[in-house]
Amino acid sequence: MTRWRLLYRVGWDLAFASHLDRWRAISRSARRAALPLAYSQGFHQRPRLAMGPPLPVGACGEEELADLYLEDDSQQQCDTVHGPMSRAPGQEDPSLRSRACFGPETKDFGLNLCGALNNAASPGLEVRQAWSLPLEERSLTACTYHARWRMDGWWEHTAAGHHVDAGYHAAAGWVVPASEVAQALLAAPSLPLHRITPKGEKDLDLRPYLLALQTGLESIEVELLVTPSGGVRWEEICRLFQERGYRFHLCGLCRTSLKWFSD
């Protein structure tokens, strides 16, 4: 069995799907591509596909991660299905939409894997890179991540009771809305939050998860820590602003980058 890490994009067509729906979209793309997938054992055999940290419903993602497992003889089987792998450098199939891949010995296969997956991909899914990694390497769920988010929308100054008009602000040369709140949040030693979920309630401190925060006229950019035990939700960042007089009305959400740390 070989393990392949996929770096993929989640576009608008898959943005409103759930984490499980996206798992299905990738696994079905791989099945359509006739890849020699490795399957789990047991009554319900499923393709061995492990997903990175869940992307919430409504979010696009630029650098999402998943690990796909293929059978040992995958290279040979893929040759049969998708044409010969060994191409001279610079002779890559232009129909393949992948941008690059890593790992010198697997370069061509990684490239072909991207192409095969993209040709069969569900709308909204684009595999950008694929590279092999040792089976024993830490699983995606056990990694720590730095996730950068961009939220687009508009501000409402709840304390003043009016909408913050971005155009007016810019013309007046005013400071970016809520920027003082962003600075105060970063400067705070702790950010207590009471989280209510269908599973229960708990108190937690958001501050350790907040790595960077910036507001724009019509946006929030934030970098968050994601640990194997969880992280902060985008709604909770908005809640911090709302509690401080600024309501952010979300129109678009994107996880722009996801950096992982194995240790």
Binding site: W12, D13, F16, A17, D21, R28, V57, S122, P123
Partner: peptide, 10 residues
Amino acid sequence: RPARYLGGER
């Protein structure tokens, strides 16, 4: 479940 209303499926 907003995906109900979006279409764009394979």
